[in-house]
C-alpha cells in the first residue's frame, strides 16, 4: 500500500540530493505552465477599470497594468503599473511598481507599493503571498488600492497619510494636482 509519511521522507532526501544540481530548465517550465494557464483566466475576468499591455507579446513575464479608477480620489487618472514575474514564480510573488507618480498613502512617489498579497515577508504569515494566489489576485489588489484597499492607517507614504489626517481637503487638492500633471493619457 502507498504510504504518504514514508513518501514524504523519501522525497525530502531526494530533494536534498538533487538540490545541488542546476534546475534552470525545470524552473522555466514550471513558470511558463502556470502562467499559460493563468492568462486566459485573467483576460476573461479583468475589472472594467483595468487593462493589460504587453510590450512584447512573446514575453509573458513582463507586462504593464493600466488602471483607470472609476471612483474615488484618483478618478480621472491613468495609472501604469509595471509587473515582473520572477523565475521562482509562483513560490514568490510578482514584483510590482507604479510608474505613474501619484499622491497616495500606500504607494510612494517613486512607485513602491504596499499591498499584502505582494509581500513575501509577512510578519504574521496570515497575509502575504501564497502559491495559490494568482495574477488575477494581484491585478484586483492593485486596482483596489484606489478604492476598497485604500488604507490610511497603515501607510507607506507616511506624509500622504498625515496630510489626509491634518487637512483632507488639501490632500484631495494635491491628489488631483498630481492626477492632472502625471496621470493623463499621453
Amino acid at each position: 500500500m502507498f504510504k504518504l509519511q514514508q513518501k514524504v521522507k523519501e522525497e525530502a532526501t531526494k530533494r536534498e540530493e538533487s538540490a545541488a544540481k542546476p534546475t534552470f530548465s525545470k524552473m522555466m517550465s514550471v513558470r511558463s505552465t502556470r502562467l499559460t494557464k493563468e492568462y486566459p483566466e485573467l483576460d476573461g475576468s479583468l475589472p472594467g477599470s483595468c487593462e493589460i499591455e504587453h510590450d512584447d507579446a512573446n514575453d509573458l513575464r513582463n507586462f504593464k497594468l493600466i488602471v483607470r479608477p472609476a471612483e474615488g480620489y484618483w478618478k480621472g487618472g491613468k495609472f501604469v503599473f509595471d509587473i515582473k514575474i520572477p523565475s521562482e514564480y509562483n513560490m514568490k510573488p510578482p514584483l510590482c511598481s507604479c510608474l505613474t507618480k501619484l499622491w497616495h498613502p500606500n504607494i510612494t512617489e517613486d512607485g513602491k507599493i504596499c499591498l499584502s498579497v505582494l509581500r513575501e515577508n509577512s510578519l504574521d504569515a496570515s497575509l502575504g503571498w501564497s502559491p495559490v494566489r494568482t495574477l488575477k489576485d494581484v491585478v484586483i489588489g492593485l486596482s483596489s488600492l484606489f478604492t476598497d484597499l485604500l488604507n490610511f492607517d497603515d501607510p507607506l507614504n507616511v506624509q500622504a497619510a498625515e496630510h489626509f489626517a491634518l487637512d483632507p481637503d488639501d490632500f484631495v487638492r494635491k491628489v488631483t494636482e498630481y492626477v492632472n500633471s502625471y496621470a493623463q493619457d499621453d
Binding site: E11, N121, P131
Partner: peptide, 13 residues
C-alpha cells in the same frame, strides 16, 4: 507532494 514540499522549503512560507 512535490508542490507543497517546494513551498514549505521556502523560508517565507
Amino acid at each position: 507532494l512535490h508542490c507543497i514540499q517546494k513551498w514549505i522549503k521556502n523560508v517565507q512560507s
